[in-house]
Design a protein around this nucleic acid. Sequence first.
DNA 1: CAATAAATGCACTTCCATTGCATAGATATT
DNA 2: AATATCTATGCAATGGAAGTGCATTTATTG
Lengths: 138, 138
Amino acid sequence: METIEQFLESKNIRVTAMRLLIYKFLAENQVAVTLSDIENAFEKADRTTLYRTIKTFEENDIVHQIDDGTGITKYALCEKGCNCEIETDLHLHFHCNNCNETICLTEHKIPQIKVPDGFVSENVNLVVKGICDKCSGQ
Amino acid sequence: METIEQFLESKNIRVTAMRLLIYKFLAENQVAVTLSDIENAFEKADRTTLYRTIKTFEENDIVHQIDDGTGITKYALCEKGCNCEIETDLHLHFHCNNCNETICLTEHKIPQIKVPDGFVSENVNLVVKGICDKCSGQ
DNA sequence: CAATAAATGCACTTCCATTGCATAGATATT
DNA sequence: AATATCTATGCAATGGAAGTGCATTTATTG
Ligand SMILES: [Mn+2]
Ligand SMILES: [Mn+2]
Ligand SMILES: [Zn+2]
Ligand SMILES: [Zn+2]
């Protein structure tokens, strides 16, 4: 069982208190979070530090960015076995129009999309909007 | 053959010089344009007017908004027969990582996307990124 | 023509993302 | 251990795009 410390070191990222806290925060949240969400969770920390921490994570394929169409960038931990380095994030994202939460549907891979002749598809962003299970359920 | 004037009137939009110019500009461009693109094309006009014109078009299903992941909203004319009022834009969009242009692939409809139980899909945003025909071709 | 309504232009605001630079903290080197 | 070196953090400022309030111009109506 790999600790977070070991995991970060394996990515050649220095272990700091802040990074551990933010990593744990992301791990606790099953939904994608905004920078403001992180900011609210760590009011003592500076916004820039949080921003740069998440960028460091992103550059090292620890988190992936999600553009769910709200205009605010969201972030979520990559799955364990994900190969962000090689291929881009292939699962789809769901944005709830009711509670405004965005979640990774990591089980749901994006289908192969046909593009016209002459076009080369490199990656695909697929966001489904609607009502999430928590909001639709009773 | 319907003129632009008649078309705007059919949508209960007053015909103004500015609106005609912007409509023509959109019709000339086969690619999706940003507000800045329009601004550059009409340097004499005020940004707010351009902004509000495009919003008016959007509200009346003359143009649709495209979020291609660049962070900058783009707009394109709706197809003639499109039923924006009823269903959301169902075709996919292609963003070229080389020339940065985004185009509507109106022929390519978005496939039915399965979502997990409890989730309700209301609409889907699908953007394929890669290399466009102009950039890949020789 | 007067009264009314809509479109335009200017200024300003808000929100989020991003950067420069100074400082604190950690690592490496002697 | 002391110093030099590098990295992470914090603060302040910037930039870009979207959006709004209000005055003015322009069009429409009676
Ligand atoms: Mn995801
Ligand atoms: Mn389109
Ligand atoms: Zn919900
Ligand atoms: Zn291209």
